[in-house]
Simulated assay, not measured.
Amino acid sequence: MMRLREQIVLAVMVVLAGVALGIVLGGGLGSFSPRITDANHQLAGMPTLQAAGATASPSLTPSATPSVRATTRSPVPDELTTTLPLTTATPEVIIAYDFAAPIVGLPQVVSDTWSAGVVDGRYRMQLNGRTSVSFTGPLPFEHYRLSVDLAVHQGGAGVIFLAEESGSIYRFLVTPDGALAIERQAATGEVVQVVPWSASPALAATPGVENHIRIERPGDGLIHFFADETPLVRFAVPPGMVQNRYGLVLTARQGQGLATFDNLRIERLP
Rank of each mutant, 00 (worst) to 15 (best):
P270M: 04
S111N: 03
L222P: 02
T61P: 10
T55R: 03
E79A: 14
S134W: 08
A17F: 04
M13T: 01
V76K: 08
A96S: 13
R35Q: 12
A11I: 05
V15I: 08
P75V: 14
I266G: 01
P66Q: 14
M13F: 10
V19D: 01
D98S: 13
P207T: 06
R234Y: 05
P231R: 07
M2K: 13
S115H: 03
A89C: 11
T71G: 15
G28Q: 05
A157P: 12
Y97L: 15
V242G: 00
P102R: 04
R130M: 12
P138Q: 03
A236E: 06
L150S: 07
G129L: 04
L84F: 03
D78F: 06
T251N: 14
V9G: 05
T206Y: 07
F141S: 02
L232V: 06
P176R: 12
I95L: 09
G155K: 06
N128F: 08
R145V: 03
I8V: 09
D177K: 01
G18N: 04
S111R: 00
T230H: 06
T175W: 06
F99E: 01
L150H: 11
I95A: 11
T55M: 08
G26K: 01
V249H: 05
G121N: 09
A181I: 11
S111M: 01
H41Q: 10
R122H: 09
A20N: 04
T88G: 12
V14D: 07
